[in-house]
């Protein structure tokens, strides 16, 4: 593993499988009375959230706490950021407080990269969603969920067909998923109206289509992306209702999917828009399980980034890690 997790592209096949296998072992913890491991005792994880988030922040917080790390939650609202503090000064403050890892969500694509490579902080940086760029832990939990249902919980996703539907243009989930699923050998098809594909999507390791119905019959997993209503005023689609008719997953469309195929959604859902309510609650919908798996996957990521010595990155942190000295 590298020192930071900024993009799904940071993970080669072995790294990705290591995260998924580790998460599979950690998932067993959920069933226990004592849901806690001492592994990250004395280490500090800062959740640095410049954008609103419920599940991702709670998920990271639960993951860090189950590994016994100290968690500091920072949200831009009600902080010095609203007084105009820059990312740099916020980072320097966190560094002075001894953060071993910073989990960052930011509206600007590339903010985690900036934080990781500017030399402002010495710890690991985990991207929890940056702008319209990436959200790698979401991709990992999606892959983990698919592997559980489609590959017996082991190995990669070689040859599995995944259809991702919706607002690819604004979706960091789509980009991270495409990169990770391609690494794991799955065949991904993105489906969206022409206006909601980003420029350069033809260079992504996936197929694209404008027609949902033709990509349901052979899909092993169908993932709906949230219709980002806050961005729909720019006339990307004529109306929400038309979008829903052509790209929403309703019961009738779901019935054309193979029996084993699963329905996924990264949340939060707009019921009745990209996903019909009865589809969201159908037995083959794994949306709630995705949330549960998110904690296991984020525990795995935090453990692999923070649990051992920091080696092989060329960063001068190795001495500290070797002697166990907390700087």
């Amino acid at each position: 593993m590298k020192r930071h997790l900024l993009s799904s592209a940071d993970l080669d096949r072995d790294d990705a499988l290591l995260v998924l296998d580790t998460a599979a072992e950690l998932a067993a913890l959920t069933g226990r009375t004592v849901k806690k491991l001492p592994t990250l005792r004395g280490r500090t994880v800062v959740n640095l959230f410049f954008e609103d988030s419920t599940r991702t922040r709670i998920s990271f917080e639960a993951a860090a706490k189950r590994l016994s790390a100290d968690v500091i939650n920072f949200s831009a609202k009600g902080s010095s950021v609203s007084k105009g503090e820059s990312l740099k000064d916020t980072a320097l403050t966190l560094e002075a407080m001894g953060a071993d890892a910073v989990v960052i969500r930011h509206a600007a694509s590339g903010a985690p990269h900036q934080l990781a490579h500017s030399g402002w902080i010495g710890g690991s940086v985990v991207n929890a969603g940056d702008g319209t760029h990436e959200h790698p832990t979401q991709a990992l939990l999606d892959a983990f969920t698919m592997r559980r249902h489609l590959a017996g919980g082991k190995g990669d996703l070689e040859g599995r067909k995944v259809t991702i539907v919706g607002d690819v243009l604004h979706s960091r989930v789509a980009r991270s998923n495409v990169l990770l699923l391609a690494t794991l050998g799955a065949e991904v098809t993105l489906v969206a109206p022409p206006t909601l594909f980003p420029v350069g999507v033809e260079t992504w390791p996936c197929a694209t289509s404008y027609d949902l119905d033709s990509h349901l019959r052979d899909a092993d997993a169908v993932m709906l992306l949230r219709v980002q209503l806050e961005r729909m005023n720019a006339a990307f689609v004529p109306s929400v209702r038309e979008y829903s008719r052509r790209y929403g997953l309703d019961k009738q469309r779901m019935s054309t999917m193979p029996d084993h195929a699963i329905v996924m959604h990264p949340g939060p859902m707009n019921r009745g828009m990209e996903i019909a309510s009865d589809v969201a609650d159908a037995p083959r919908s794994v949306i709630v399980e995705q949330v549960a798996n998110g904690v296991s996957v984020r525990m795995a990521v935090l453990y692999l980034l923070l649990g051992g010595a920091q080696l092989g990155t060329g960063e001068p942190d190795t001495d500290d890690a070797d002697t166990g000295v907390e700087a």
Partner: peptide
């Protein structure tokens, strides 16, 4: 996850419990 020498080596893969 309970070893006292975890931080002396890169994070290890977990084995089944």
């Amino acid at each position: 996850m309970y070893r006292d020498d975890l931080r002396r080596a890169p994070a290890r893969a977990l084995l089944p419990t």
